[in-house]
Design a protein around this nucleic acid. Structure first.
Length: 550
RNA sequence: GCGCCCGUAGCUCAGUGGAUUAGAGCGUCCGGCUACGGACCGGAAGGUCGGGGGUUCGAAUCCCUCCGGGCGUACCA
């Protein structure tokens, strides 16, 4: 990346200036390059001189001293001092030509870095209770988790996508109970859904199917046996359904981890013991408490209820240990905003178990409100009025749904206007971007018919203002991907892709690609090819398709 | 009460590890098509960055405080 080259040059200048006493430095100021908003301010700008001038020296004088000591480079055309002491760099055309060549060559690794090489990351996301269909909220989680995983892979990390299934606690029991009641109803046996049970229509649908498949043989079974069967089959069916929903949505979890497996293997018990051995557990009122308040939590938390049943926290502790044993350097849990209260206890558990808490990361995704015909639809799983992800996908399609989930920062509540997202029109950014891609495909096809070859393109031909803007935007891809990965901010990539499509459209409008001028046509084709590759690559990181025609 | 998130253009939102004149999409208004896909392009109007204080040469960005909205505050997660 160019900024690496520029930083190196700047550091060399700083050292030189420090050595010959031109500037007094207590410590080397950090060199950061950023893109100026205004083109007149050059291609790249740094404020090192201002940072170095904190001691009171004149930043502009420092800036000049640094310029005088910059090593020569064929990348840099000129450097200017601006305003209070900014250094504005103008780069040589070679820089952009290099970008276009690399961007249009799939083997160049354009937009990829290896900063994550050797780092193993576990990304756990969605992990909704297996007691109902994946909801639209789950969809946002799926889109974000998948895009973040892709971003981490693009920056060289080894990623495992994981789904944790809470199949051992109270919720699954309530679900089984609710299913039993609905099953019995099929045979005219009245019953009542337990308080906090599952009222959703889908429970009735499933019960009806089970009634057909199993007949009435469970009607006369003991309640215990009936519930156990409902639990087993219900879980199996729900998991299959959830998996199908997620696959259809284009996300794939490599690992489906069952909470029950931790209890069966004794991992939960040994995690509790390990916490106890560390002196983090205390018996109180017949329950066993984890002393999380000593590790930054507001209060202590129950690990084992007085009934003897472990809480989720006990399983979660065992799960932390399990992940750690599997060799992950980083554990990312993508959680819903409603779980923020649990974060301190998880981090406390990690620390008590000897897992450095800085290795555990818990981004919180805010809620969604669905708007249809101007009316907000609120969701609640137990009341049964969730909007299933499948329903949303039926209505707006996978691409539009994903794109809109990835359009905003995670920590921002998202208003999802179904009518708006459904529009297959250029006003809808996802189609605007896809259209740009399809249009390039069409141009390339046309060029192929004319037997134009891009290999020997002379990029010096690209001097039009639109071409220049487009090349600069392509160059920005190399910073955008790692930046989005670092910040866990897929929306940065979404924005970028949109800007790229915009710059391409302007270029397309003003610069005819396939003309009688062979040299110019080849150069422009190469630029088209580069743009197409980057659009397709960015979209694939987001999990959105890049159609050849629409 | 306490904790977390949000408050930026009419609407939906970027930008928030300070830095040169605050952005996008939609909507509104004006202009441009015998087009390699017009599902487009160009331009305009529109903002005391929730209010107030502070730190700084410089704050949408950092600190304090207040207001408004959401969520959480269980031997549920």
């Amino acid at each position: 990346m160019v900024t690496d080259v520029l930083k190196e040059m700047m550091n060399a200048a700083l050292s030189a200036a420090a050595v010959d006493g031109a500037i007094a430095l207590e410590a080397m100021p950090p060199v950061e390059f950023e893109r100026p908003r205004k083109r007149e301010h050059g291609d790249w700008s740094t404020n090192v001189a201002l940072a170095a001038g904190r001691g009171g020296d004149n930043p502009r004088a420092i800036a000049q001293a640094l310029i005088d000591r910059l090593p020569p480079s064929d990348m840099v055309e000129s450097v200017e001092i601006a305003g209070p002491g900014f250094l504005n760099f103008r780069l040589a055309p070679k820089w952009l030509h290099d970008v276009v060549f690399r961007a249009s060559d799939p083997k160049s690794g354009f937009g990829r870095t290896d900063e994550g090489a050797g780092i193993k990351v576990n990304v756990e996301y969605v992990s909704a209770n297996p007691t109902g269909p994946i909801s639209v909220v789950g969809g946002r989680h799926a889109a974000v988790g998948d895009a973040l995983s892709n971003l981490l892979e693009a920056t060289g990390h080894e990623v495992v996508r994981e789904y944790y299934v809470n199949d051992a606690g109270r919720q699954i029991r309530l679900f089984a109970r609710s299913l039993s009641v609905r099953y019995l109803e099929q045979f005219g046996v009245p019953g009542e859904i337990p308080e906090d049970g599952y009222q959703g229509e889908y429970v009735i649908v499933l019960a009806r199917r089970l009634a057909e498949e199993l007949g009435d043989r469970l009607v006369h079974a003991s309640e215990e046996e009936r519930d156990a069967t409902m639990r087993r089959i219900g879980l199996e069916r729900m998991l299959a359904e959830m998996r199908a929903t997620l696959e259809r949505f284009g996300t794939h979890h490599q690992v489906w981890f069952l909470e029950s497996s931790l209890q069966e293997s004794g991992a939960t018990r040994s995690a509790i013991e390990k916490l106890g051995a560390g002196g983090w557990v205390e018996e109180r009122d017949g329950a066993r408490w984890f002393l999380s308040s000593r590790l930054g939590d507001d209060k202590d938390r129950v690990l084992v209820r007085s009934s003897g049943e472990p809480t989720y926290l006990a399983s979660d502790s065992a799960y932390l240990l399990d992940k750690s044993r599997r060799g992950f350097d980083r554990l990312i849990y993508i959680l819903g905003a409603g779980h923020h209260g649990t974060v301190p206890r998880w981090l406390a558990a990690a620390e008590a178990l000897g897992i450095d808490r800085s290795r555990v990361e818990m981004p919180l995704i805010q809620n969604i409100s669905l708007v249809r015909a101007g009316v907000t639809v609120r969701a609640s799983k137990r009341a049964g009025n969730v909007v299933p992800l499948d329903e949303l996908v039926d209505e707006v399609g996978v691409d539009a749904a994903r794109y809109n989930f990835l359009n905003r920062s995670l920590e921002s509540p998202l208003e999802f206007d179904i009518d708006l997202v459904k529009q297959q029109a250029p006003e809808n950014p996802v189609y605007y971007v896809q259209y740009a891609h399809a249009r390039i495909s069409s141009i390339l096809k046309k060029a192929e018919e004319k037997a134009l070859r891009v290999q020997d393109a002379e990029l010096g031909m690209l001097t039009h203002e639109r071409e220049d803007s487009l090349m600069r935007k392509l160059a920005a891809y190399e910073e955008t991907v790692p930046d989005a990965a670092h910040r866990r901010a897929p929306q940065r990539l979404t924005r970028y892709i949109e800007e790229l499509a915009t710059d391409f459209s302007a270029f397309y409008r003003d610069c005819k690609v396939v003309t009688d001028d062979q040299q110019l046509s080849k150069a422009r084709l190469r630029l088209c090819l580069a743009t197409k590759s980057v659009l397709a690559d960015g979209l694939s990181i987001l999990g959105v398709s890049a159609p050849e025609r629409m």
